[in-house]
Amino acid sequence: MISNSRQRAVFFDLDDTLYDHLIPFRTALTNILSTPEDFPYDQAYHRMRYFSDALSAELGGTPTHGEELHQMRRQRFQLSLAEFGLLLTPDQAQAVQDEYLSLQYAIRLFDGVEELILELKARNFVVGVITNGPPDHQMNKVRALNLTRLIPEELIYVSGAVGFTKPDVRLFRHVTDQLGLAPEHCCYIGDSWRNDVVGALDAGWKVLWFNHRSVHPESDHQPHHQVAGYPDIAKVLLSDYL
């Protein structure tokens, strides 16, 4: 337990920040819908994430179980893929979701993640993860990445377990309150504008927007840095930024 308000801390988002979330998405579409090589996977993935966040927000936060969760997951595929000419029935959307889910554990950390986390810890940073989703599902990804060899489980915060969902500032405040951290000495790295940039900034954290998909901002919020890869992230974090 950290009790020093001057302690510096770095927390990462999980999906599409610590590993490439596009790979299971692309493979699921290819396997189930036989989408061609030139299908705009990047753009479709971005829209799927957009609708996932938007539908979750309409429900008051990421649902963690039951038919509400299953319906949200089907709808995000139906709505996003319709924009690219793929009109899915609920059964087709469920088949894509099932395949997508089965592939989400065949994942590995982005190059440079492990080295950066080890260097941050060597410099006495608190290093953790804040992620949205059902606890079992997100922790299965953590185990698939063997992430607890780098970050202890007590520093991995899953919205479904905490009770608040990004971008709700209460999730970020829960972390700082529990660990005795000052928000201005905390930095959050994430890819989602709505969840990561907006949520962390509104909670008073410093923010690195990991915009490796080259998408556009969705509001007037101003992240402290915009980065496209782990060399850039390391350069910022290992300077005197915090």
Results as ranks from 00 to 15, higher is better:
D220I: 08
V162P: 00
D42R: 10
L69R: 13
R173P: 08
Y45L: 06
D136R: 14
P63F: 03
L181D: 01
D15K: 09
Q75N: 15
D98G: 05
A95E: 13
V126S: 02
L101R: 15
R213I: 08
P217F: 04
G163E: 11
E37C: 10
L145D: 00
S239E: 11
T62S: 09
Q138S: 01
L103H: 04
D177W: 06
Y188I: 09
R173A: 01
G85A: 05
W205R: 04
A93K: 07
R8I: 13
M48V: 15
V198L: 06
V198I: 10
T17E: 02
V126K: 04
A182F: 06
L145R: 05
P167A: 02
T35P: 14
V96R: 00
F77R: 10
F84Y: 15
I117L: 05
V96F: 02
D42H: 09
V113F: 07
P183D: 02
Q178Y: 06
F125S: 02
G133Y: 00
D191H: 11
E37N: 12
L33K: 07
N140T: 03
I130L: 10
T62Y: 12
A9I: 11
P152R: 09
P152V: 09
S52T: 11
E115I: 08
A203Y: 04
Y19R: 11
Y188T: 07
E184A: 10
T62I: 11
L238H: 04
Q43H: 01
G85R: 05
E68D: 12
P24F: 03
E119L: 10
P135V: 11
L33W: 09
V236Y: 03
T176V: 12
L101A: 15
E218R: 12
E154R: 14
E99A: 13
R73S: 01
P152K: 09
K121S: 06
K121L: 08
I189L: 12
N31A: 08
Q97G: 06
A203F: 02
L237C: 04
R123P: 10
Y41D: 03
E68V: 15
L181R: 09
A9K: 08
A95P: 13
L22H: 00
I233V: 14
L147T: 02
G85D: 02
S214Y: 12
I151T: 05
G128E: 01
G60L: 09
D168F: 08
Q92C: 08
K206W: 02
L118Q: 15
L208D: 04
P134R: 08
R74T: 09
M48W: 14
G60V: 12
L103D: 01
I189D: 01
V158Q: 00
D196Y: 03
Y105C: 12
